[in-house]
Amino acid sequence: MSESDFFSHVTAARVHGLPMPFAVEHTQTIHVSTEEPTLRDRVLGVRGHHVAPKTVTVVAVRGVRVTSAVDTWCQLSTMLGLDDLIRIGDTLVRRKHPFAEMRDLLAAVRRYSGRRGVKLLREALIWIRPGVDSPRETDLRLLIVRASLPEPEVNAIIMSRTGVKLATGDLVFRRYRVLLEYDGGQHRTDENQFHWDVDRLDALMEERWRVIRINKSHLHNPPEVIRRVTVALMAGGWRPVAKAQKVPD
């Protein structure tokens, strides 16, 4: 690689640690970009890309030159599907150590106007929410909203009636006092985390919150997840909006 070359696309995403589909993440092809117009795929397994001057930001990650995380997300719009772009977008504006803010994503999509993939980026922006902790939380939220259930708050703080913080809930339906928690591996293997979860859930139930815990296996049965959430929401007072029926002529 010359001084004008830098990693991009899937390779940059791997360097940044962005979530991608298994098949894409484990591809052996290395993606290299440059602003020099003479770039060619010079080595087997290397795919070269030419980018217009000053259209992407190049950063150093552990000494490796790569496109910025936001520009990498834009580049991946020609390679990934909508939900993959939403997961990555949620990761960019995640709760802890975010790569960017929503305004950065909006500005990037505006700069990307006219290029292939921008339509998918615009659609992804509609679904991206700041404050998410994991791609599984993203999947769970999308499942719920696409089933026409109310949209929950993401990693929202829950207070007791006396003003004491009870928890930061993954997906919170505050009006109906329903909390949806995604339990990753740490919740089972970390003893301190396990005891903290027990105490926290007891405190929430004392405040009359309905807590639904979901893990990876549950996501393989979406109808059951939707059923459980629907039952809890209706117990809290939510009612589905009746669909308008077309009046015969």
Rank of each mutant, 00 (worst) to 15 (best):
G117R: 01
D139I: 10
R94D: 09
Y112M: 08
F173A: 02
D83M: 03
R136Q: 15
I88T: 15
T91P: 13
P130Q: 11
G131M: 04
W127C: 04
R177C: 11
R161C: 08
N155P: 00
L143G: 12
A167P: 13
I86E: 00
V172D: 04
W127S: 09
L179S: 09
A124I: 05
L140G: 04
L80I: 05
R129N: 12
L179R: 06
I128R: 01
V172F: 02
R129C: 05
G163Q: 09
V178D: 02
L92I: 05
H97K: 15
Q75C: 14
G114P: 05
Y176V: 07
R129I: 10
L121A: 06
R115V: 01
P98F: 02
L142W: 00
L179H: 07
R110K: 13
D133S: 14
V154C: 04
A124W: 01
G114K: 05
L106Q: 12
V109F: 09
M79P: 08
A107Y: 07
E137H: 04
M159T: 14
M79Q: 15
H97G: 15
L142I: 00
R111D: 10
T91I: 10
I128Y: 00
A108M: 08
I86Q: 00
K119A: 13
R95A: 11
G169C: 10
E101G: 06
V145R: 02
I88E: 10
R110A: 10
V172C: 04
S77L: 13
D170Q: 07
G131E: 02
A147F: 02
G89V: 05
V145W: 01
R146A: 13
L82C: 06
T91D: 15
L142Y: 00
G89D: 12
R116C: 02
D90H: 05
L166N: 07
A147L: 07
T168Y: 03
G117S: 02
W73K: 04
R177V: 09
P98G: 05
L80V: 01
L92D: 02
V93S: 03
N155C: 00
S113I: 08
W73C: 03
P152V: 06
V118L: 02
S134L: 11
E123Q: 03
K96E: 15
Y112W: 09
S113Q: 09
R129F: 03
P130F: 13
G117M: 01
D84I: 06
L106P: 10
G117Y: 00
R115D: 01
Y112V: 07
I157Y: 06
K119P: 06
R110P: 09
L149K: 09
G114L: 11
P135Q: 14
I157D: 08
W73V: 07
D133H: 12
G89W: 05
G169F: 06
D104L: 06
G114S: 10
K96N: 14
S134M: 09
V118R: 03
N155T: 00
R87H: 12
Y112S: 12
G81E: 08
S148E: 14
T162C: 14
F99M: 11
G81R: 06
V172L: 10
R136S: 15
L179F: 04
L171S: 06
I88W: 13
E137P: 08
M159C: 12
R136K: 15
K165Q: 13
L120W: 03
R122A: 11
V109G: 07
